[in-house]
Design a protein around this nucleic acid. Structure first.
Lengths: 99, 99
DNA sequence: AGTACTAACTTTGAAATTCAAAGTACTTTT
DNA sequence: AAAAGTACTTTGAATTTCAAAGTTAGTACT
């Protein structure tokens, strides 16, 4: 138990970041607006959590134009996938006695 | 997705509280010292998180003497079990696309 | 040309959370 | 009498989180 709880990653305790990572585990690239709508967030709040995940190098950014509008998309890096996966392993282990 | 993330309970985002609740889902009563050792916490830190769970009425306290020493134990209330279970449901749903 | 709009932020400042460290009260052991 | 155990409470500082407002840069309408 002592070990399990310490394996939980502080980067993922916030539910916004948990939501972002979940989206990015399932979808290779997700754009800003979609994330914002799916997670029901303001621009600022989403941007700040994205920034912290970027600083940890858990996600990467791609900027392009679609038609004439800018489109910013995000993807989980290999590091990010590993870290998130480890976090989920720890969660699972912590809770495996559920039933 | 929008709904799922909002179902996550703020009371359980902290890993200490997650650990406490996990212990109390599996064991009917767990004493202070055991919790402290299992979760590798200082007295103060454990006490403060216990207090917040108590204030939410998610756990209840029992004080007794065993031999001549005081023993304080904790148990998840029905409300607490329900809330935690709902939180886990939300987590599970959020992550079910994992594989 | 001017106004409004969209996308994606950044900044600001305040509130809430978290934590370590120290202090407390009472009891037991040595 | 001194040290240690049990279970806290208090304090204060650091960190985190958030909403709200402001910014930048290009697009579209009028």
């Amino acid at each position: 138990m002592k070990k399990i709880i310490n394996k939980l990653n502080k980067a993922f305790d916030n539910k916004v970041r948990l939501g972002i990572m979940s989206m990015l585990m399932v979808n290779e690239w997700v754009d800003f607006k979609t994330l914002k709508e799916m997670l029901d967030l303001t621009d600022g709040r989403l941007a700040s959590h994205i920034k912290s995940l970027e600083e940890n190098e858990f996600i990467e950014v791609r900027k392009e134009f679609v038609g004439r509008k800018p489109l910013t998309s995000y993807s989980a890096t290999k590091t990010g996938r590993k870290a998130f996966s480890d976090h989920l392993d720890a969660l699972e282990e912590l809770l495996k006695n559920r039933y």
